[in-house]
Design a protein around this nucleic acid. Structure first.
Lengths: 224, 224
DNA sequence: GAATTGCATATTGTCGACAATCGACAATCA
DNA sequence: TGATTGTCGATTGTCGACAATATGCAATTC
């Protein structure tokens, strides 16, 4: 099979399939056949199965015993569900991060913020997304709650999937969104938890509304 | 091995191991050997591996590639982390359930509440716990957010584990806690989201404090 | 013609075997 | 002595084969 040293086969496979789902190359409701993936990647079904378990944890596929794996649906409703949770959990992150962030955290936050600002300036949407995930990662670590971090990271793929769908519509308002991250960094530095949380909640609602406009404007994937 | 038709082997194995971890028969940090479980249960390692993946999703074990599975730690910090998330997510549940609950939901809630009240009356702690999980389940469904439901259910095993540890100290204050569930049912019926959320947050902080007292070895006021 | 049954095929579930890797301890060397 | 390397048993990773189950389609029945 491949030439790369397969450091961790299931993880590798997972990432590959993950990317396909996020990019909508594998459509919602579509069935994923173990044997097919295994052959494509030149491995046996065992690591593919493990990859599917991970994807299930990340909510990109649904596993039904004896029926196999299907790409999870993603509708306007899913987007609403997602952002309501997003708001609650990142609200907690914001509050705790403002409470616990040390100088090192703030420095990393500044780096991520810079990245976001520059990407927004250039209109580079991909880089912008990378930046906000970096920012989120720093914030999560600063919140000093690994369980929260894990829970949130399991939702990242869903987040990326939703964002990917609205990618081409995003360009216009990048600069506007940058202000949120600037505000977040500021509140973290000041240790102003309540305002940080409030700001996040507003942001989440904005993002939800944005994603919903897209989802309702153009039909996303279909099933069956 | 057994005579039962193994409808879903990984699930069965998962439940068995799950219970052992929750009851502390498998201790935090303890290694779980695939071959050992497989032999004990009279199955091959394949279904055991899948069970371990599920347990990882439920945060009862940690899976490190090429090192195997270990029972996750559970310390005072873990308890704090857990209840902070608990508060955020059940806060959302409470708010949404108060908004969306229909007559059927309220009826089921009343049934669960009754179960809780009777268990508290009898001092039956196990039944009390069953009751509150039933209550939580109804509330989650009433909140009309399957993603939230899934996320929360993946945290149930952690919840049970924490509660199990404080089992024998629980008896005294069951009746006091009952008032909380009565209040929740009331707010749900009234559609009073904000108060429901506020009540949940208070409850979560109480539970956190209680669990922490136990974890720190202090026997809640009364010496012993 | 619609629903039901029975089969052939496709797909998932489980197994046992072997390969790759890890951890601990012994042997070696500076 | 103390650090490094080598070796061996224990354990996880991957595989291919077979068993169990589901699915789609054609034949059958009413």
């Amino acid at each position: 099979m491949a030439f790369i040293a397969p450091d961790n086969l299931p993880e590798l496979l997972m990432r590959d399939i993950s990317e396909k789902i996020i990019r909508n190359a594998l459509k919602p409701g579509e069935r994923i056949l173990e044997a097919k993936i295994a052959e494509e990647m030149g491995v046996s079904r065992s690591p593919v199965r493990e990859a599917l378990r991970i994807l299930e944890k990340n909510r990109l596929v649904e596993l039904v015993p004896r029926k196999g794996a299907r790409v999870t649906a993603i509708t306007a409703q899913h987007i609403e569900w997602f952002y309501d949770i997003y708001e609650a959990l990142y609200g907690l992150v914001a509050r705790k991060a403002a409470e616990y962030a040390d100088d090192d955290d703030l420095r990393q936050m500044a780096v991520a913020l810079d990245r976001i600002e520059q990407a927004a300036e250039k209109g580079d949407v991909h880089e912008y997304y990378n930046g906000i995930f970096e920012f989120a990662g720093v914030g999560m670590r600063a919140a000093r709650n690994p369980l929260l971090e894990q829970t949130l990271k399991e939702l990242w793929p869903s987040n990326r999937r939703i964002q990917y769908a609205s990618l081409q519509f995003r360009k216009d308002d990048l600069k506007q969104n940058v202000r949120f991250f600037q505000a977040m960094a500021k509140y973290a530095a000041e240790g102003n938890g309540p305002m940080a949380e409030k700001e996040i909640r507003k942001y989440a609602q904005n993002e939800k509304a944005f994603a919903l406009r897209i989802a309702n404007g153009k039909k996303m994937g279909k099933s069956d």
